[in-house]
Design a protein around this nucleic acid. Structure first.
Lengths: 222, 222
DNA sequence: CCTCAGCTAATAATCGATTTTTAATGAATA
DNA sequence: TATTCATTAAAAATCGATTATTAGCTGAGG
């Protein structure tokens, strides 16, 4: 009974999708840039078919714009869109966090503490920026995980990716990061205390502070 | 200056995407069914590459499940998911409608009246079910169109498609449809009166009534 | 000069064939 | 009788080549 659940194996297409998603969110492509498919094929050492399948998925996900008969381009950035994304994050993550606080069990509490701790550790070790990003994403995912709505989680994930396109335009700012980290800690505390009201207020503040960072990044480097 | 904006031409891939989306939402595939790609290729008279690209997009959109190395399947239906979708509709469409009432201009008012009228006409002509579906979608899209958030509109669209997978399991029910149509009319009236409070209340009621229909469809035919 | 047709080079989209992986079958073993 | 393993059939994924479309260029005509 070799019954490990495989999280859907892996194909050339799925692998290049993951890599491209990371690179798009991480800002390795300029906003508005037209993708040179042959160059990508070369650069990522992947065949045309799996590459195109990945690009199609990314377009459906919102990290690329597909223009029929003229390929794919990276979506442009705008202050309006950043505002939109931040507003949506406020609404959806707030909703999700409140529900998570209602539904979350002991395992969730443990996950929260673990996620926060890992994130803090990665923060001290300054290098390994990629690792930090992954842990940060994971932390926020954990916050809302037991909200009970698959669709809400899906939308939040999507918004995070979009938001990070802005936030990651600039270099990391250690001072602000420390403040945000402090909030991460307090968010966990309030979640454990099941203080939905205060937790939501703090999450709002957290998102707004992140928004300020992202906006600054956009204005200076976008 | 031949400056008609082309809404992104058309490719074999984009065409089959549209058709498959319609068929998936319309329930032409059984929930849980595994897609036989060669049969689809045959049936829709389309090449393998464009077909696969379309399937990849549909998976990213949530109308298919992609399992690496074992193709695509139609997502299963469950009461829990229907509840989730309906809850999300209540939250997101409510939010969007309120904002639309704040932002909507005279053109919007005109669009609303037009969309409602077209829908009512299509309702009298009993046949042409496909046409009715299109107008119904369009009506709800118009309701929230000027909400100001691209992402909110995107999520709502996605939820509608998911919701309709349930609603369209069963045959149309003329009695209920008449009630829903009455609500469509009242929704427009309240929107024109800019009575956000009452409008939202009625939209909630409308979604709940639709939910009852969809649930019944699911329980009887799912 | 500017515009626009016609040509050409570059790129996107698609096809047909091949490779890889999974699912189905059935005999061999415990 | 249930389970494992090998074998084969079916299906998914990928490759390499071809076709269709667009974008860039050039020179004629207004």
């Amino acid at each position: 009974m070799n019954q490990y659940i495989q999280p859907s194996a892996s194909t050339a297409s799925s692998r290049i999708y993951d890599v491209l998603r990371k690179d798009l969110v991480g800002g390795r492509f300029a906003a508005g840039e037209k993708l040179a498919i042959n160059a990508l094929k070369e650069h990522y050492q992947v065949g045309l078919s799996p590459l195109r399948e990945a690009l199609n998925k990314l377009a459906a996900y919102g990290l690329l714009i597909q223009e029929n008969q003229r390929g794919f381009r990276v979506p442009t950035l705008s202050r309006d869109e950043l505002d939109d994304i931040a507003q949506m994050r406020l609404a959806l993550e707030g909703m999700a966090f409140e529900q998570a606080i209602v539904n979350g069990d002991a395992a969730w509490e443990a996950d929260l503490l673990a996620a926060e701790h890992r994130l803090k550790c990665a923060d001290i070790t300054l290098d390994k920026d990629d690792e930090w990003e992954k842990l940060h994403t994971q932390f926020h995912r954990t916050l809302v995980a037991p909200c009970g709505s698959v669709w809400l989680l899906r939308f939040i994930e999507q918004l995070h990716d979009q938001f990070d396109r802005y936030r990651r335009l600039g270099p990391k700012m250690p001072v602000i990061r420390q403040e945000l980290d402090q909030q991460h800690h307090e968010l966990v505390e309030l979640a454990l205390k099941r203080d939905a009201q205060a937790a939501r207020t703090l999450l709002d503040e957290h998102i707004r502070k992140s928004y300020d960072v992202a906006l600054q990044c956009f204005l200076e480097h976008g």
